[in-house]
Amino acid sequence: MSSLSERLLHALLDTLLMIGASSLVVLAVGLPLALVLVTTGPGGIFQALPLNRVLGSVVNVLRSIPFLILMVALIPFTRLIVGTSYGVWAAVVPLTLAATPFFARIAEVSLREVDHGLVEAAQAMGCQRRHIVWNVLLPEARPGIVGGFTITLVTMINSSAMAGAIGAGGLGDLAYRYGYQRFDTQVMLTVIIVLVLLVTLIQFGGDRLARWLNKRG
């Protein structure tokens, strides 16, 4: 039997892997999704209301399902994608699917808050729509997007612990098996401390980055 610190390290790496892999997909899919939601909406630069309504409904449906239920419901789909419903990679699928619409909505708010006057100024100077996305919407919303991504990461750590309960591995799994099933308070406490440190670190880093990116004075 390995020592507590070894098990802890292993679990931490599993969690980081789960979060890392999922968050990359969340960023890569959620941000474009947020852009589409904002720009196809009423008065948007690519206004397309039917598409906007369909995407908005999909996001709402995904967001309204509790993570635990989503995870179970997705098992066949997960098996189809990664070949198993057990372990770190299997957890990446429901984590990504839950966090993407979450992040997309937060990023959408930041993008929507970009002053319409800036878009108008960009149009008046001869910007095409793609220029407006790259040079106005994304840079201006960047501090808010970074802040939203930080919140998403923290939420994902929460969810990943839940995923641990159905055999995904990671810190949640460790705490559940030793802390809950074996009443090993020491493991439980240690996991809690590690989680608190991890969340604090992410929040601190995210806040610093967002503040540095915010030039609004």
């Binding site: 002053d115 006057g117 800036l118 108008e120 100024a121 960009a122 149009q123 008046a124 100077m125 001869g126 910007c127 095409q128 220029h131 040079n135 106005v136 840079p139 201006e140 960047r142 990116l213 030039k215 609004r216």
Partner: peptide, 29 residues
């Protein structure tokens, strides 16, 4: 629109860009 410049009451400068980058933007695009 490149032949017709426009200025605004609330300036509408890009807050995330420096003065130089703001002026360069129309040329860059």
């Amino acid at each position: 629109r490149r032949r017709v410049g426009m200025i605004f009451q609330h300036f509408n400068l890009m807050s995330a860009k420096t003065v130089w980058q703001n002026v360069a933007l129309p040329l860059k695009v």
